[in-house]
């Protein structure tokens, strides 16, 4: 779901007007008072606007990722999807870790333990999938 400080009525008008948004498949949330933005620490009291924050919440309601950019920097959707997929993977395999280059199921993961100490390079280059 996307969230801005506009109302749902403005979302409708924007989505109808802007051709880039013709295929939007997600809900567009309205946070005109900044109530939800404050909860996540992205509401800027000075401007009355939400900063560009991205948050992933598990089905149990736990906040697992957070990223906040200033107004003038867009986000990389590939990186967001990488993190989302990693969350799905780790929910199934909680004793593994997804390193920075992990992209999708089947990529090398790390299993923290004594044999990993000082040997992360070997584990990554040997493509250990625990």
């Amino acid at each position: 779901m996307t969230i801005s400080n506009d109302t749902e009525f403005v979302h409708l008008a924007w989505q109808r007007d802007e051709k880039e948004l013709a295929d939007v498949g997600f809900a567009m949330g309205a946070d005109p008072t900044g109530r939800i933005g404050r909860l996540f620490g992205v509401y800027d009291e000075g401007s009355g606007l939400n900063l560009r924050g991205t948050f992933i919440i598990s089905p149990e309601g736990q906040l697992l990722n957070s990223e906040v950019n200033f107004y003038n920097m867009g986000r990389n959707i590939d990186e967001l999807m990488r993190r989302f997929k990693a969350n799905l993977y780790l929910a199934r395999k909680p004793d593994e870790g997804c390193p920075s280059k992990w992209k999708d199921d089947g990529d090398a993961t790390l299993r923290p333990g004594p044999e990993m100490v000082g040997r992360v390079h070997e584990a990554l280059t040997e493509g250990q999938t625990a």
Partner: peptide, 21 residues
């Protein structure tokens, strides 16, 4: 909340109005 949520916190239930394209 006095402090914004941080990673690992449980998010309190909330509702928000939406437009569903």
């Amino acid at each position: 909340t006095p402090r914004p949520l941080g990673v690992s916190d449980m998010v309190p239930d909330f509702e928000i109005n939406t437009y569903e394209p």
